[in-house]
Amino acid sequence: MAYFAQQSVNAISLGFLYALIGLGYTMVYGVLTMINFAHGDLFMLGAFVCLLLVTFSPVALPFPVLLVLVMAIIGGLGVLIERLAYRPLRQAPRVSAVITALGCGLVISNVTLSISPYSRAMPEVFDDRYFNVLGVGVSLLQLLIIGVSLALMVGLDVLIYRTRFGMALRAVAFDAKTVPLMGISVNRIISLTFLIGTGLGGAAGMLYGMAFPVISASMGVLVGWKAFIAAVIGGIGNIRGAVLGGFILGTVEIFSVAMLPSTYRDLISYSLLLVILIFKPYGILGRAPNVKV
């Protein structure tokens, strides 16, 4: 029982991380119907930016300051990539933009690799502590990951469903061609979407690096793909779907490792994707695209 509870805590914190990354995929897909394949590499960069900040900052930066800086830098980079690489292809076939995204991801991971060819140890950002709650070991770090992710997701939900920007974002997702007639600049909404979506990916990278403190230039690939799977399972383009998908994937992974040989982990998560897509081709919360007349 304690074992089960212990694994549940692990599953929840991993699920939150997948959800945070998956949100970036799903937000961009929502407004551009394009998969930003550079997102996983921006996630990786979030961990490296955190490492750089901790290493080179003359003063010890407290965790909240680090988090905001990482989110701002990665979010800003996401905006820059959209502006320089994706926007010129806005009217081109989607496939061109997707290939460009893959290319951007390769550039980011290979530049990182050339600067840091070996894996790096993530320094401790704060003194971790362990608590024993009814026989279940919970670390301060896990609580922090859960707390920060939860706060970011609630913040995002409020932003999307309760603010002017969110209203415009949902309108762009529904019909970007009509949005300018409201006096809204679609480009501004898309830039803000990238700022937030990739900023969340950066935050996830930093938290992931703290949780699994060996970071490398290639870490974005596998984790990025998994978060993408989470977003697809939930229904790509659907914000709450990405969170749900993240939890499902995190839970499946943790419990498959806990109960089966750990090498089965990826086999099981990818199989899950296949099975869900057979029965729910648009994901669990996704809907078939509207047929517009």
Binding site: F174, D175, T178, L181
Partner: peptide, 8 residues
Amino acid sequence: GRGIFGNL
């Protein structure tokens, strides 16, 4: 075709 945002 009205251009209503059906999800809003």
